[in-house]
């Protein structure tokens, strides 16, 4: 009987530990961030420079936030359609065996370490993407986003976004295909029996039924893109200014900046980096919580009926 009590206590403690851990991350980061934030003479949110160890310290996350959001947006624009397409292929279009093979390969892509994505992006993809960036500049240069006044097309936000897209495709397609295969066969057949083509059936039944799961998949991908460090750190040129010309060298992100500045930072510098990490943590926390809540709501909605 006593054994039971002890064991229950242990398992419960482990559960509480997980809660405290999540809470603890926020608390410890916040406490450590205080000194730098207090000493900072510039506006933390709007400043486009990073001089925390100068006297007086002056740093802000504007450029980091811009780079983080911009690379993530590019990644999402590319990865959501492709990831959804793969999920459709695996769950609906392909024969089961071929579908399994493709699913396995895509999952394997998810297992590739960031440092390898970074190295490959830097040494291989970047050179091969110059043409694409130049093409964007030539034909779509009238859109400020794609204009390139420097005629240098490497180490750009755009290339980082492309690599991030490849990195989050597996996340998006894995979650999405899980929800796709759960579409009730009865509804699929009802749509087909009404004379829908396969694509019409997908739009009529699969997408509406899977919408919460698809949104949540996209947000999980977004969370991963926002927090990715090493690949981005290797690819971007780590400039501290907001540049809307995404194919020009430049850009920086919360995570990459932390990795790059860590070893040269003094004590206020470290504290400032932790402050930027806290912002990153809160953003990814919000994104992830939203993603999970959407799925939980859907579960209620489906099981409620």
């Amino acid at each position: 009987m006593n054994g039971d009590k002890v064991f229950f206590g242990l398992s419960r403690a482990a559960g509480v530990f997980v809660l405290l851990l999540t809470l603890g991350i926020g608390v410890f980061l916040a406490v450590t961030a205080v000194p730098a934030l207090r000493e900072n003479t510039a506006n933390f949110f709007t400043t486009q420079q990073w001089l925390p160890d100068a006297n007086p310290p002056a740093f802000g996350i504007a450029a980091l936030a811009f780079g983080t959001v911009m690379t993530a947006i590019i990644a999402m624009v590319l990865a959501v359609p492709v990831g959804t397409g793969i999920a459709l292929f695996v769950a609906i279009y392909a024969k089961p065996t071929l579908g399994k093979v493709v699913a396995f390969l895509v999952d394997l892509l998810a297992a590739v370490p960031s440092i390898i994505f970074g190295l490959w992006g830097l040494e291989f993809l970047m050179g091969n993407m110059i043409g694409v960036s130049a093409w964007l500049d030539t034909w779509f240069g009238w859109i400020p986003l794609f204009a390139n006044d420097q005629d240098v097309y490497t180490r750009s936000i755009f290339i980082a976004g492309v690599v991030l897209a490849i990195m989050i495709i597996p996340t998006i397609s894995a979650v999405t295909r899980e929800v796709f295969v759960q579409t009730p066969q009865g509804h699929v057949e009802a749509a087909l029996a009404l004379g829908a083509t396969r694509w019409e059936m997908i739009r009529m039944v699969v997408f509406p039924y899977s919408r919460p799961g698809m949104i949540s998949a996209a947000m999980l991908g977004l969370g991963r893109a926002l927090g990715e460090t090493i690949a981005v750190a290797l690819l971007l040129s780590a400039l501290f200014e907001i540049n809307w010309h995404i194919t020009e060298p430049g850009g920086n992100t919360f995570a990459a900046n932390i990795a790059l500045k860590w070893n040269e930072a003094g004590s206020i510098g470290l504290s400032a980096l932790v402050a930027s990490g806290l912002v990153l943590f809160l953003i990814t926390l919000a994104v992830n919580m939203a993603a999970r809540l959407i799925v939980a709501r859907k579960r209620d909605f489906v099981e409620g009926h």
Binding site: P184, E189, A190, A191, A193, V205, R211
Partner: peptide, 11 residues
């Protein structure tokens, strides 16, 4: 076609 289990589109 009408199926055994009623299957109106839930969305």
């Amino acid at each position: 076609m009408v199926f055994q289990r009623p299957n109106p589109f839930p969305t």
